[in-house]
Design a protein around this nucleic acid. Structure first.
Lengths: 221, 221
DNA sequence: CCCGGGTTCCACCCGTGGGTCCAGGCCTCG
DNA sequence: CGAGGCCTGGACCCACGGGTGGAACCCGGG
């Protein structure tokens, strides 16, 4: 978060993507930018590590899907051995796993590939300055996983479930088939099915999968 | 995430801070920036809402601690009634509660007050482009709260699941039957069943109910 | 006392789910 | 070019799940 940034020396950037059709034009267009100097282009993680070892690097623009050594693992090693190098992820995938893995590995930015040139340049500058830039959808997903927890305490099940029905729902939530539930409750499978039919109707549950979700959401499992 | 950004019209920015000693110099120095036009300075949330109602605004630079109507609530209203206006929080406090509350309310950036002018300008530009900029410490805290929960319980899925298999598992976790999954993915039901069989074998999942639990535990649903 | 709800169980039907085997198209890698 | 992985699809089988319509028992309360 230092003041003198924009007008000092150009930023030394490494571009990493296994697809040459993406990597080469990207490197070329970035290199045209005033304060950006693309010092290397790598097709996998090892290429990135080599480039960082070879000379001083400010920012690595990293694809996640790469052969041999992928972006996550490369990011992890960089933040271990070269914490002064900022990693910005640029990938087509924006699923929770990838986002959490990348940021957890130490990435200082996460862009999807529908980001424009200006978006990428801005993220590189921010990362070099110690800031972190996320695409809108990425931040939304990150936030969604944060707030997925406190809602779990809600009891959105109807109150008129009988104790036995609750018990059955709990066991369904644990993934047990009807036979196992029957054995556990010392009743016949037919009885379990009756309870299930009743509680499905009461709680507006469509099928077993739905029941599992509701049981977990209600804190029964 | 649109391409033409930097060189178009200047960004219309509202500065909100209850302390005049912070607000005025900040507004002045930002107004000096080429592509930034400070159209209003507000001392509380109502001032911000008035300014947004009065004319088009691209970005609000928002302090959290303000009298009458604080930054969180103002952000919430803006993202409800004026989702086209991006909010960047600028505050001295970087505790978990404030960060989560602000981002949850719809803020597209979170800076602490040791951010320099360039950092603030960069965050404003990013927010206007739909990106999100966080201070390094803010991202670290956000990540820590995410990682406190789901990493402990989740992520016990084998890594060799194909993207398609993950996708199918996610939809199973949402309670969808095979036919609905097939329609959603534009493939036949037979294909869905193949993916399911493969991923069940890989991830040691017994049946659909089990799959729902695992998907939720892994944070896919 | 009998009515009602909860619990237990039966028989039957049939749709979906889960498992197996196979096969073609596509891509990447060696 | 061949090998192998991924995605796609079809065929078949059978078990489990879900729905229906019963029926019996026990218990508490109007």
């Amino acid at each position: 978060m230092s003041e003198p940034t924009e007008s000092s020396r150009p930023l030394r950037v490494v571009v990493a993507d296994d697809q040459a059709a993406v990597r080469e034009p990207l490197a070329a267009v970035l290199d045209l930018t005033e304060d950006i100097d693309v010092v290397a282009a790598a097709a996998d993680g090892n290429g990135v590590l080599d480039a960082v070892a070879a000379g001083p690097v400010d920012v690595v623009l990293m694809d996640l899907r790469m052969p041999v050594l992928d972006g996550i693992e490369t990011t992890r090693r960089l933040s271990d051995e070269h914490p002064e190098v900022a990693v910005v992820v640029l990938t087509t995938f924006a699923d929770d796993d990838s986002i959490l893995a990348a940021l957890g590995a130490g990435a200082r930015g996460y862009l999807t590939k529908n980001a424009g040139r200006q978006d990428i340049v801005r993220a590189i500058r921010a990362a070099a300055a110690g800031q972190s830039v996320l695409d809108r959808e990425v931040q939304d997903r990150l936030l969604a996983t944060v707030r997925a927890r406190p809602t779990a305490s809600g009891q959105q099940l109807p109150a008129d479930l009988t104790p036995r029905e609750r018990e059955v729902l709990t066991l369904i939530g644990q993934g047990l088939p009807n036979r196992a539930i029957a054995e556990k409750l010392f009743v016949s499978e037919a009885t379990v099915k009756t309870h299930i039919n009743n509680l499905f109707a009461k709680a507006d549950i469509r099928d077993r999968a739905d029941a599992v979700r509701r049981a977990i959401a209600a804190g029964l499992a």
